[in-house]
Amino acid sequence: MAGSVLPYSARAGDTVPPLPPDACDCHMHVYDGRFPPAPQARLRPPPATVDMYRSVQRRLGTQRTVVVTPSTYGTDNSCTLDALHQFGNQARGIAVLDTSVSDAELERLDRAGIRGVRFNLAVGAVTTPDMIEPLARRIAPLGWHVQVNMPVSELERQAAMLRRLRVPVVFDHLARIPLPAGVDHPAFAIARGLMQERRAWVKLSGAYLASKTGAPAYADVGPLAQALMQSAPDQLVWGSDWPHPTEDHKPDDAALLDLLTSWCQGDRPLRDRILVANPARLYRF
């Protein structure tokens, strides 16, 4: 199966348990030609609009979503805010900001549904690690979190700082823990420790970014995902990473969602917790 916006009937198999009400895709991006890319943007994918994503939702059976400002727009969150307005109360957002943001702007973003600040230090970074701690202090009264997408070398360098934060940390894409090292890599111990202290979350997303064995099963990712589940099941959420802007060959979104079911090894309450209760707590739906 190819393409991220095929009709629901094209989803693999009828044996996958239906999703619970309010299931949430906690990581996707919107790209809309009405909003110009930042001059320094490295990724400039074709349009991936709210209407296109609604087709994905119908196919998957998800109802809630978290829109993450992509690197394409730098610190301009206009496209994400427009998407939140279109989606309504079933969506929340993650902004990209630097330390020049005003308190009034933070309050405006909060009212619009923003719930965190992303530091994408892996692709097209427009912010720096030294901005994380001062911004974390400013967003703490809003109940937001810091979301990080960073190479594991940077994660190891910043581990002490991340432990000092008084807001939760959300690690993108399986915390970018490299394979085949997986659970034996020092980054796993860092993420697991923070999760078990309820100070961090991990997004079960981007299996194709980590896998060495590849599609469709991404078999080498399963043990890592399951180890994270065993470590702190209440600190996990799932995301599609639609429209997969780094990938020339787009993965199938239904297959990515079905991976979560397989990782849960038949534990349907665990899958449903990752899709509903955990996101509701993290993003305040």
Rank of each mutant, 00 (worst) to 15 (best):
M1A: 15
G3L: 10
S4H: 15
V5L: 11
Y8S: 14
A10T: 14
A12E: 15
G13N: 02
D14A: 13
D14Y: 07
T15I: 08
P17M: 05
P20L: 07
D22F: 13
H27G: 06
M28N: 14
H29D: 12
H29M: 07
Y31V: 12
D32V: 02
G33N: 10
G33A: 10
P37L: 10
A41C: 09
R42L: 13
L43N: 09
L43S: 09
R44D: 06
R44P: 01
P45W: 12
P45H: 11
P45S: 07
A48N: 06
V50C: 13
V50F: 06
M52S: 13
R59A: 10
R59D: 00
L60V: 12
L60G: 06
G61D: 07
T65I: 12
V66E: 13
V67Y: 02
T75A: 08
D76R: 14
S78W: 07
T80Y: 05
L81H: 11
D82E: 11
H85T: 12
H85Q: 15
G88I: 10
A91N: 03
R92I: 01
G93F: 06
S102Y: 02
D103R: 14
A104M: 04
E105I: 08
D110I: 06
I114S: 00
R118S: 02
N120S: 02
L121K: 08
A122C: 07
A122K: 09
V123S: 01
V126T: 14
T128Q: 14
I132L: 00
E133M: 05
E133V: 10
I139L: 13
L142M: 09
G143H: 08
V148A: 01
P151A: 07
E154L: 15
R157S: 09
R157T: 12
A160F: 04
R164F: 03
V167C: 03
P168A: 11
D172I: 00
A175W: 04
R176Y: 10
I177W: 02
P178Q: 04
L179Y: 01
L179D: 01
P180D: 00
I190Q: 01
Q196C: 01
E197H: 00
W201P: 00
V202F: 02
K203S: 01
L204G: 03
G206E: 07
Y208W: 08
L209Y: 01
L209D: 05
A210R: 15
K212C: 03
K212R: 15
G214Q: 12
P216W: 02
A217T: 10
D220C: 04
L224M: 06
Q226P: 02
A227H: 09
M229A: 01
Q230Y: 01
S231H: 09
S231W: 08
D234Y: 04
Q235I: 02
L236E: 05
V237Y: 10
W238N: 11
W238P: 09
W238K: 14
S240V: 11
P245I: 12
D248Q: 15
D252I: 09
A255V: 13
L259M: 12
L260A: 08
Q265C: 02
D272Q: 11
L275R: 06
P279L: 04
L282S: 06
